[in-house]
Design a protein around this nucleic acid. Structure first.
Lengths: 241, 241
DNA sequence: CGATGCGTTGATAACTTTCAAATTTAGTGG
DNA sequence: CCACTAAATTTGAAAGTTATCAACGCATCG
């Protein structure tokens, strides 16, 4: 799988230059309050230097303990990072949606594996290319700093989330997804219940039951398993502890 | 409290220059594998630009929602960051020990409050001073990037931790503290049981019970409430899931 | 010496997981 | 296009874990 991915990357990187210019990214990730979205030079660099790779559903983008040679940006679809624990449980680290940059957290070797949740297009950029620029262009380094500190904040939210009850976790998850969704009140989930459970540190049954409860309480609607309509967003927010 | 802290900072900043050169920092934070500890220029800058402020036990270093004007480095003692949730519970974000830099994660406004756990000396540096340098010196920005990505990794570990059982959380906490301790097998805790509980997302009773269990199992010893001796580190590590 | 804060211990209640089964959805081949 | 199979999701009942409430022990400090 590791080799397969590497070959795929290589193949694309050897393609003619026209292919290395990716299509416009999808909806940008939601910005935290107070943050200015600078049309960063990092973005341009990534698009010029990188290659867009298509991953089919469940394909591995990178594996745990692999050398962290690349930085990634989701163009379309969704990517999950995860780690298999000693006892066989899987912990999902993050869900990356279009516009998100990931792989920054690993300086040498990846601590988590990454897989496409749905069919996904990912912009893959050599870290060495970025590093070379970083030492010359301070604004790039600054952008990387801003990006990681934003992820750090998101991770802090995550930590707050995991200390809460099942209902609060699910509610927080829904709010988070709604904020990142293009249509703010209708959430199209790219991930399975198992993914959500492993993300929230719950079992699939608890997630399912909690969603059903929220539906009974008229807070959400579940027209389909992977489509959730927020009916009472205020109530959801208030469940966040 | 907010004003009090601000005044304290200001007072020190106005002191003669000789006072603004801090004593050597304590033990550096534990480095992750594969990371080189560059005797960074950031460190020098901080020491030249910043002021050392002494906080008595439980004094506030900064408050939630305050403007994030400074970056901090623990010189001695310990600092906890925390957030009071809507329902009154407290969630501890992190424990910062000598050598740790904190406050990086908040670009505009602090998401968490920070308090000295014990009497603590903290190097306080104006963010604007750093920012000014960042735009000229790429290596500073790069250091900031490395620092935040390291914290991001630590936070990821934290997320993994919080998905586990009480016993695993406590075991992981002990291992983490041992790694950050100068004497690797004897841990002198600067924080209370309540701090630990709020850090691990458990109750104080569960933490206490789990520690007692570990002692019965001969994995640790508890000569005093805040002193823990690791007897079987391997067993502890294996409990980490 | 009593007061106070911190930590430990015990019993019960609440919540979440586990195990099992039913139900729905999605993918595949005829 | 429909039927069939496999996978995903939901639901139910019992077991396990952690929180809550309450009381006790221990040290520090006036």
């Amino acid at each position: 799988m590791i080799i397969e991915a590497a070959i795929r990357n290589e193949a694309v990187r050897l393609a003619p230059p026209s292919c290395t210019i990716p299509p416009l990214a999808g909806a940008p990730a939601h910005l935290a309050f107070g943050e200015v979205h600078k049309a960063g030079s990092l973005d341009q660099i990534m698009q010029l230097t990188g290659a867009v790779v298509s991953y089919p559903r469940n394909a591995e983008v990178f594996g745990e303990d692999e050398a962290a040679e690349y930085i990634y940006k989701v163009v379309s679809g969704g990517v999950r990072t995860y780690k298999i624990l000693d006892d066989g449980r899987r912990q999902v680290g993050a869900f990356h949606l279009p516009g998100d940059i990931f792989g920054l957290e690993d300086s040498v070797r990846h601590a988590l594996s990454a897989e496409a949740m749905t069919g996904a297009k990912v912009l893959v950029v050599k870290r060495s290319a970025i590093n070379a620029l970083v030492s010359r262009d301070a604004s790039i380094a600054q952008e990387l700093f801003v990006l990681t500190s934003r992820q750090l904040r998101r991770m802090q939210q995550r930590v707050l989330l995991l200390a809460k009850s099942a209902q609060e976790r699910v509610a927080s998850f829904l709010v988070e997804m709604a904020e990142r969704s293009p249509a703010s009140n209708i959430i199209e989930l790219p991930m399975s219940r198992q993914d959500i459970a492993d993300y929230l540190g719950l079992t699939i049954e608890t997630v399912s039951r909690t969603l059903t409860c929220l539906q009974c309480a008229a807070v959400i609607e579940l027209p389909a398993a992977r489509r959730i309509v927020l009916r009472d967003r205020l109530a959801l927010s208030q469940m966040n502890g």
